[in-house]
């Protein structure tokens, strides 16, 4: 059965495993052919920065990994506008140029149209 699922990723990469867990959960959900969207907000925005050189700390780069999302047919990506602005970033700093920028009210709306939320 097709469920509308929103995965919310709010944590910075590398310092702990939350961001990687979110990514793994997204790929797994995609394999089960669900209607998946992903929302990046708060420090989750930092996962999307271009040119992360994670080999410097012996980790896999989120720049690289998140670039694979289109190959898993995960193309509904949302970015929280206030989080972006708070961090002094613009969409040009991020790897997802096809993402939709949404404000808080739009996110409330997005949440309330889901069957499930995966919180990361």
């Amino acid at each position: 059965m097709h469920k509308k699922i929103l995965l919310i990723s709010r944590h910075a990469p590398y310092g702990n495993s939350i961001a990687k867990d979110a990514f793994d959960a997204a790929l797994a959900t995609a394999i089960y052919d669900q209607d998946l969207s992903m929302l990046f907000m708060d420090d989750g925005i930092f996962q999307l920065l271009r040119d992360q050189q994670a080999q410097e700390i012996s980790q896999k780069s989120f720049t690289s990994m998140l670039s694979a999302l289109p190959f898993y047919d995960i193309d509904k990506l949302y970015i929280h506008q206030e989080s972006l602005e708070q961090r002094g970033l613009t969409i040009e700093n991020l790897i997802v140029d096809n993402a939709t920028i949404v404000n808080s009210a739009q996110i409330s709306n997005l949440l309330n149209h889901q069957d499930h939320i995966l919180s990361f």
Binding site: I8, R10, L111, N112, Q114, D115, H116, I117, S119
Partner: peptide, 8 residues
């Protein structure tokens, strides 16, 4: 509630 969002 219809769904739960955990903020952590």
């Amino acid at each position: 509630f219809n769904r739960v969002q955990s903020w952590y």
